[in-house]
Design a binder for these strands. Structure first.
Lengths: 120, 120
DNA sequence: CTAGACCTTGTCGCCGATGTCAAGGCAACG
DNA sequence: CGTTGCCTTGACATCGGCGACAAGGTCTAG
């Protein structure tokens, strides 16, 4: 599979595939002409990357999942390192939820106060 | 009040005060030597800016609040434009809370699944 | 042979609040 | 006068995923 095909099948751009490669996440073979060659396994890797990115992971967080897939696991979350990242991310999300909740209360109060002072 | 004093009293840096000015939020007078001169009203303005920034507002969102203060209101949220921004921000926060909640569920599932497959 | 579609690497820009450094003017004190 | 500490403007870097472009190599169909 060439880079363009992979990009289309994985729902991303060639730019990003090269970017992931530069960051050590994807490792295509090279044809004699220098073109990158991807197999099915890489397609799965890229799909994993895209899903995790969409959830809010950074490339560094994703690395363990890719390593896990590459180690032969059917899903990328089955390895200790991946689980550790999942735990950390869950904690981060909870933290963010807390802060947002506080902000929400704050905003609500301010809005209520403003409307009480000068109803519009 | 010179810029350094204001920075200290408002809990920010001179860099940021000039930045807010460049974005039309703060309007100091100028002394004969070219130094910026701030009065008490500007201190209140900068405090408002800092509070709203801390809550997650962007400089553009903050502009109406500053205008409201500058128009003589005791608090920056008493004007229609400010209230509109508060409403919009509240909606944004709710939206973000929704998405984060979904992500949280997603993470929780993935974690549970990983632990069920290979307990660690 | 040529046009077009693909590939290669490399570089620049974006966003937005902020740090940091540089070169120079001004003020106050000894 | 010299030093110190404030001020001025201006410019560059940061983070991170991504778009976009340029200059050139490669391949394929007509």
């Amino acid at each position: 599979m060439l880079i363009g095909e992979l990009a289309e099948q994985a729902g991303t751009s060639t730019r990003m595939l090269r970017y992931y490669e530069a960051h050590g996440l994807v490792r295509p073979a090279r044809a004699a002409n220098g073109y990158r060659r991807y197999d099915e396994a890489e397609l799965r890797v890229v799909r994993e990357i895209r899903e995790l990115l969409a959830v809010g992971f950074g490339l560094d967080d994703i690395r363990p999942f890719v390593a896990c897939l590459r180690a032969g696991n059917p899903s990328g979350d089955a390895c200790p390192d991946s689980v550790a990242v999942l735990r950390r991310k869950l904690a981060e999300v909870d933290d963010c939820l807390d802060r947002l909740g506080t902000v929400r209360r704050h905003l609500q109060e301010q809005l209520t106060h403003a409307l009480a002072t000068r109803p519009q």
